[in-house]
Computed example of a mutant assay.
Amino acid sequence: MKALKTSSCTTWGIIASGSALMIAAPIMPAWLTFLLTLSFAKALVVLGVVMQMRAGLVSFGQALYYCVGGYGVGLGAQFLGITDAFALLALSTCVAVILALIFGSLLTRFREIFFAMLTLALSMILYGVLVKSWALGSTDGFNIANVFFLGWEAPESQYKLVLYLLTVFIAAIAAIVIQRFLNSDWGRALEGVRENEIRIDYLGLSSKNLLFFNYVFAAAISALGGGLTALAAGHIDPDMALWTTSGEFVLIAILGGTSHVAAPFIGALVFALIRTFAVQHAPHFWQLTMGLVLLLLVLFLPKGIWSVVARLKLKGANA
């Protein structure tokens, strides 16, 4: 009963937060809406990383599906003539799911560092292919023209705002779905796989099937984030599949925490704000500034930023 009440509160909290962000959109400066759009899109990828962390697996190659999502949108618009944002996002997600179904059967046989390195290898293979593909712009990538929204063409001045609203809406829906999944029997069984895989098999559940489904689900969410990033930035390039991009997603997951579905969104936003202001105020030393700030956060908040919220909630419950 308590778990059900907590789940319901989380759902309403996500709805309330998403509604507030959408209502506040008209009064936000353009730079903030753009930053939030990219942050929430990347947070979807981080959610994919967190889902696998819950099962005891760390993916250093989640950028593979992030890149597939971005290039799926770009290729669909440029070579297939698809101009609707929803159709492009659906296309890129389906491509990512097909790849995940193929790779997942192999990857879910491995654990720990072997899983991490194999995911990284697949991501770097995609990066190498894209770098050598001159028809796709090689290292420069290519631009994506503005798209339609269910047949409606947004005015040029409002295009970024519409994309922001779309991203917040999709992020809220995805967060609710994942939160309910993680609180379901399957989601809790994934934590059991992390703690003791043999006992899960003895209970009559297949740990391999659980990990496989989780891997495919995470791939779909990550591709959705990549597609939204491509639409918002209006450009894609092979760096979307680079190992540093995958490392960034893992870092954001650690920064925000893995104990709540809202943590990746908080982590992604804090990460983006730190990087933005570090670049603005220390353009020649922004990597050092950002590294120091993140190091302090990790040292003093080893369970992520969400642990602060959890402690405050615990104090309020005990008061």
Rank of each mutant, 00 (worst) to 15 (best):
Q287L: 15
L107E: 00
G187V: 09
N146H: 14
I102P: 07
L210I: 04
G69R: 01
A317N: 09
L91C: 07
I144N: 00
R111L: 02
L150Y: 12
T289G: 14
G151I: 02
R199Y: 10
A121V: 11
L297G: 14
P238I: 05
F79K: 13
H235E: 10
F114P: 00
G227H: 00
L44F: 02
V49R: 02
L296V: 12
F110W: 04
T139A: 10
C67L: 07
S123E: 08
F110I: 04
G151R: 07
A135G: 13
L205Y: 15
I176D: 08
T139P: 06
G69H: 00
L251H: 09
A90K: 08
W306T: 06
K208Q: 15
Q62C: 04
S184T: 05
N209V: 14
F249R: 06
V97K: 04
I221W: 03
R194P: 05
I173K: 11
A77T: 07
I102R: 09
F110H: 05
P302Y: 08
F277N: 11
V73K: 01
Y127L: 06
T119I: 04
L21N: 00
A232S: 12
G81Y: 12
F181L: 13
A233Q: 12
L21V: 01
L44Q: 02
A233S: 12
Q62Y: 06
